[in-house]
Simulated assay, not measured.
Amino acid sequence: MTPSRLEIEEQQKKDWLNEHLPYELMMARYSVAQLSQATFWLDWNAFLASFAVSACNLAAFLTNGEKGNNFRAHDFIEGFRSRKGDLANTFAMLEPQVFHLGKARPTDDGKFTLQEAIAIHDWIESEMEKFIRQLGSWREHWNEQRATPVDRPAGPILQITGLQAQVQTASSSDPVIVTYEPRRK
Rank of each mutant, 00 (worst) to 15 (best):
E78P: 07
E78T: 15
E78S: 15
R81N: 14
D86Q: 14
A88Y: 04
A88P: 00
N89L: 14
N89H: 14
F91S: 04
M93Y: 01
M93I: 08
E95D: 14
E95R: 13
E95G: 07
E95C: 02
P96Y: 01
Q97A: 08
Q97I: 00
V98C: 10
L101F: 13
L101V: 07
K103M: 08
K103V: 11
K103H: 05
A104M: 06
P106Y: 10
D108F: 07
D109Q: 13
D109E: 14
D109Y: 08
G110A: 11
L114A: 03
A117F: 02
I120Y: 02
I120G: 07
H121I: 02
H121N: 15
I124E: 02
E125Q: 14
S126G: 06
S126Y: 06
S126E: 14
E127S: 09
E127L: 07
M128R: 02
M128P: 00
K130A: 07
F131R: 01
I132L: 01
I132C: 03
I132K: 07
L135P: 00
G136A: 04
W138G: 01
R139A: 14
E140D: 10
H141C: 07
H141A: 12
W142I: 07
W142Q: 03
A147K: 03
A147C: 05
P149F: 12
P149C: 12
P149G: 12
P153S: 11
A154F: 05
A154R: 11
